[in-house]
Deep mutational scan, measured.
Amino acid sequence: GTEIELESKNGQREHYTATSEDEARKIIEKAVRRGIKRIELRGASEQLIRDMQEIAKQIGLQYRTDGSL
């Protein structure tokens, strides 16, 4: 699965493990709508990382991946 670590603007951290790319995408989209400061992805697919970079650029988000592409 993909591990997703979120940090909201007030510094609250949340951790999710998505079993599918679809689920990961839903978690990320929800977080973005809620207003999130930072997202870290571990074990994400190349496609998901590309999507994440696109989203991050659009809304000026900090993100990090573990680089295991």
Rank of each mutant, 00 (worst) to 15 (best):
E40Y: 13
Q58M: 09
Q12I: 10
S45K: 02
Y16H: 07
R13G: 02
E40H: 11
I49H: 09
E29L: 12
S8Y: 15
S68E: 10
Q12V: 10
K30V: 08
Q58E: 12
E7P: 01
Y16Q: 02
Q53P: 03
Q62E: 15
Q53I: 15
K9N: 12
Y63T: 05
A56H: 04
E7N: 03
Q62M: 11
D22S: 09
R38Y: 11
E5R: 12
M52G: 00
K30P: 01
E29F: 11
T2A: 05
G1R: 13
R25E: 00
I39F: 04
E29Y: 10
Q47I: 06
A18V: 13
R64P: 12
E21W: 06
T19C: 14
L41T: 04
Q12K: 12
E54A: 11
G43V: 02
R50V: 07
A31S: 05
T17F: 13
R13M: 09
E40K: 13
E23Y: 04
R34L: 08
A24D: 00
K26R: 12
V32I: 15
K9L: 13
V32T: 03
R50S: 08
E40R: 12
L48F: 07
G67Y: 03
A56L: 13
R42V: 08
I27N: 00
L6G: 01
E40N: 13
I36N: 01
Q62S: 09
A44L: 02
G67Q: 07
Q62P: 05
I27C: 04
R34V: 13
G35S: 04
R25Y: 09
H15R: 09
Q62Y: 14
G11P: 01
R42P: 02
A44T: 02
L6S: 01
Q58V: 06
I36S: 03
D66L: 04
N10C: 14
E14S: 07
E5V: 14
E29V: 07
E54V: 07
Q58H: 08
R64M: 15
A31W: 06
A24R: 00
L41F: 06
I55R: 03
K26Y: 08
T17N: 07
S8H: 15
S45C: 05
I28G: 00
T17G: 03
S45P: 04
S45N: 09
K26V: 09
R64I: 15
G60S: 05
Q53H: 12
S45L: 03
Q53F: 10
Q58R: 10
S20V: 01
A24I: 06
Y16L: 06
S8D: 14
L69M: 12
T2E: 01
S20M: 02
Y16T: 02
E29K: 07
T17H: 13
K57E: 12
E23K: 03
A44I: 02
I36M: 05
D66S: 03
L48N: 01
G1M: 13
R13Q: 08
L69K: 04
S68M: 07
K26H: 10
K26F: 10
R38E: 04
D22P: 06
S68N: 09
I27D: 00
R13P: 03
E23Q: 08
A24Q: 00
E40Q: 13
E3L: 11
R50W: 08
S8A: 08
E21K: 02
Q53Y: 13
E21R: 05
